[in-house]
């Protein structure tokens, strides 16, 4: 490859086995819902492997949140496609699903015993506290990537208030952010005298 991979174009250097492996790791270590996974995916794909920059990662969350299905699966499919097209999305999704699948199939034979393991419950209480830290670190890092002006500050507060009060479902909160972005774009165009 002579040209460096441009953002948005498939990067053939990422191997399908790497995609599968990274997402299997993420699938195996995500506890407590899809949000916990955001911290892991950002660490692997933004910081460690530079598959995405921070803004692209925010786009990924927006898409994963506003489409049906589990956030983890949505993120895997999206990122896999972005990096290696259809087969990339296939192997990333297979990777994120397989650890759960294997664990549950095995567990279903020992369900009675598992239910009574008190230390599993203790471990999960510990993990809940650890996951909270991971999410705080990831959210602060993503916050730093947003342009620092009053407009994005207003939009952050807008998103926070709508989400914290649970007034409308999250996909609609994201959609309204998009509409506001579009309207702001229109008004700035009008001010500078250009047509759309």
């Amino acid at each position: 490859m002579k040209n460096p991979p441009s953002i948005g174009a498939p990067d053939n250097k990422v191997r399908l086995s790497t995609l599968f492996g990274v997402f299997a790791k993420i699938g195996a270590f995500t506890f407590g819902g899809g949000y916990a996974m955001i911290a892991l995916i950002s660490k692997e794909s933004v910081e460690k492997r530079k598959w995405l920059n921070e803004s692209e990662f925010l786009d990924l969350i927006a898409i994963a949140e506003s489409t049906p299905g589990p956030i983890a699966v949505n993120s895997a499919t999206y990122l896999g496609y972005k990096l290696r097209g259809f087969w990339g999305s296939f192997f990333a999704t297979l990777g994120v699903v397989l650890p759960s699948f294997v664990v549950i199939v095995i567990l279903s034979y020992f369900l009675e015993a598992f239910r009574h393991l008190t230390w599993v419950g203790y471990a999960f209480q510990g993990i809940a506290a650890g996951v909270a830290v991971l999410i705080i670190n990831a959210a602060l890092k993503l916050f730093k990537s947003v342009p620092k002006n009053w407009l994005s500050f207003v939009l952050i507060v807008f998103g926070f208030i709508l989400a914290v009060t649970d007034l409308i479902p999250t996909p609609l909160v994201i959609l309204s952010g998009g509409i506001l972005g579009f309207l702001i774009h229109l008004s700035s165009r009008r001010k500078s005298g250009e047509s759309l």
Binding site: I38, L58, I61, A128, I135, A139, F160, L162, G178
Partner: peptide
């Protein structure tokens, strides 16, 4: 333009997630 509006809103949503996961923990 649409994405430039969505990104800060997602950061706001993540702040909510961060708060509710911390409180839950």
């Amino acid at each position: 333009a649409v994405l430039s509006g969505i990104r800060p809103v997602v950061v706001g949503i993540l702040f909510t997630v961060m708060l509710s996961l911390t409180v839950k923990a």
